[in-house]
Design a protein around this nucleic acid. Sequence first.
DNA 1: GTACACATGTGTGTTTTACATATAGGAGGT
DNA 2: ACCTCCTATATGTAAAACACACATGTGTAC
Lengths: 129, 129
Amino acid sequence: MRPRGGRGARCRRMVRPGHWGVHARVERFSEPALLLLLRERATHGYELLEALPSLTGEARVDMGNLYRVLRALEEDGLVTSRWEAGAPGPAKRTYELTAEGKRLLDEWASALRRSRERIDTFLDRYEGR
Amino acid sequence: MRPRGGRGARCRRMVRPGHWGVHARVERFSEPALLLLLRERATHGYELLEALPSLTGEARVDMGNLYRVLRALEEDGLVTSRWEAGAPGPAKRTYELTAEGKRLLDEWASALRRSRERIDTFLDRYEGR
DNA sequence: GTACACATGTGTGTTTTACATATAGGAGGT
DNA sequence: ACCTCCTATATGTAAAACACACATGTGTAC
């Protein structure tokens, strides 16, 4: 890699003197998002990449990491994949959710409900209630 | 450091074969939590450490990182600190929120509301609505 | 032929979190 | 005196999560 001047994006950064920009993101949120999209329909990485912002709200899905997440999910038996033949254009690897992957999605949903409650607790206290 | 057998805790881990445990945590959530506690009352690190679980919901606040976050906040002018004299026992460094720190807390609150909405979007779609 | 959209990847630096350890004051027991 | 425990602040470092850059190949439009 060539040396670069830019530094990695941070969760909190000064956008201009005395002004802060904050992103409150859920850790590894791309994983449950992928699982949910795959529960709706088996599809390939590039399409998931385009569909993710509708779930995550931001366009910040890194394709490099996306493909790594998909491979990790497959290693853990949470999705299966096969090369899609027949279609014109570049080869596509289609991913499908397994039963265990479905159970993991359920766990994520519970975890996200708990996370939402913690945020509510925080906001209630912030608003002085 | 001595070699250790344990590996770092992960966001997702297999608790037993075919069973997954998930934690959906907001990145850097300890920062807004500290700011909120300091808005309520100026106090020192160790007390913040004990008060944090009431906001974060989990007992997983690392004291090492807590003190580093406090120092980072001070470097950025978001809190000020002074050594507390007079009291018996080990010296305490008392932290106080600045006006700019208050503004950052407001930014965090907005960011957390947006985060909450993203979680809602996900859960609505998960539940098929 | 070259520019662009599609499609799947690897390499690597940065940020954030987790775990271990160091240092020190005071209280209470033996 | 010595030991243990609670309070209090801090550093060292490894792992996990994330961001950014680059490599490779197919097909379509100009």
